[in-house]
Amino acid sequence: MSDHLLVERNGAIATVVLNKPQAHNAISIDMYRDLPAIMAELDADKDVKVVVLRGAGQKSFASGADISEFEQERSDAAKAKNYNAHVAAAEQAIENVSKPTIAMIHGYCIGGGAGLAMACDIRFADERAKFAITPAKLGLVYSLESSKRVVDLAGPSRAKWILMSGQQIQAERALQLGLFDELFPVEELEKATYEFAELITTRAQFSVRAGKVMVQKVVAGQVRDDEATTDLRNSSFDTEDFAEGVRSFLEKRPPRFEWS
Rank of each mutant, 00 (worst) to 15 (best):
D76V: 05
Y32G: 00
S143Q: 04
A88L: 09
F61M: 05
E198T: 12
H24C: 12
R173C: 04
D181E: 04
R247K: 07
R203Q: 14
K81L: 05
I105S: 01
M39F: 04
L250I: 00
D226P: 02
G211P: 10
A136Q: 05
V52T: 10
L153F: 06
N96E: 12
Q22T: 12
R173G: 03
A40F: 02
N19L: 08
Y142Q: 14
P100D: 10
G115F: 02
H86W: 11
A119Q: 07
V215C: 08
D126I: 09
K212F: 10
T201A: 02
A44G: 09
E258Q: 13
Q58N: 15
N10I: 06
R233C: 09
Q222T: 01
D225Y: 09
P36T: 01
C120S: 09
V141I: 14
W161D: 13
A154K: 00
Y108A: 13
L6R: 06
V97R: 09
Y142N: 13
A119N: 06
D181Q: 05
L177F: 15
F70T: 00
F257T: 02
E8K: 15
S75F: 10
K130C: 11
G221P: 04
V87W: 10
M214P: 07
V208C: 10
R253Q: 12
V7T: 15
S157A: 15
A129L: 05
I67S: 08
H4L: 12
A103D: 00
Q168M: 14
E240K: 13
G55C: 07
G111C: 15
R256D: 05
L42D: 02
A228N: 11
P21T: 11
K79A: 03
Q205N: 14
V16G: 10
S248W: 06
G64M: 04
A77T: 08
I122N: 02
A171M: 09
S236D: 05
F249P: 00
S260G: 09
E187M: 14
Q22L: 12
R54G: 00
R253D: 03
Q58F: 11
D34Y: 05
L232S: 03
I169E: 08
V218T: 06
D45Q: 03
S143D: 07
D238H: 09
M214I: 13
P100C: 12
F180M: 04
R74V: 13
H4I: 05
K217V: 00
S235F: 11
G245W: 01
L53N: 08
F61Q: 05
R253S: 06
A119F: 07
A90M: 03
T193F: 07
E95T: 14
A80I: 01
G112C: 05
S68P: 05
E69C: 11
A129M: 03
F124A: 02
H86N: 11
D66G: 06
A37G: 06
A65E: 12
I105V: 15
R128D: 11
E71P: 08
L138V: 08
A228S: 13
K79N: 04
V7D: 11
G107T: 13
D121W: 12
E73M: 14
D76A: 11
A103L: 04
R123T: 12
G178H: 00
K49G: 14
P255M: 00
K137F: 15
L35W: 01
E95F: 14
A65R: 09
H86E: 09
Q22W: 10
R54E: 07
G113P: 04
E172M: 06
A23V: 08
T193Y: 06
A171R: 10
W161A: 13
A40R: 07
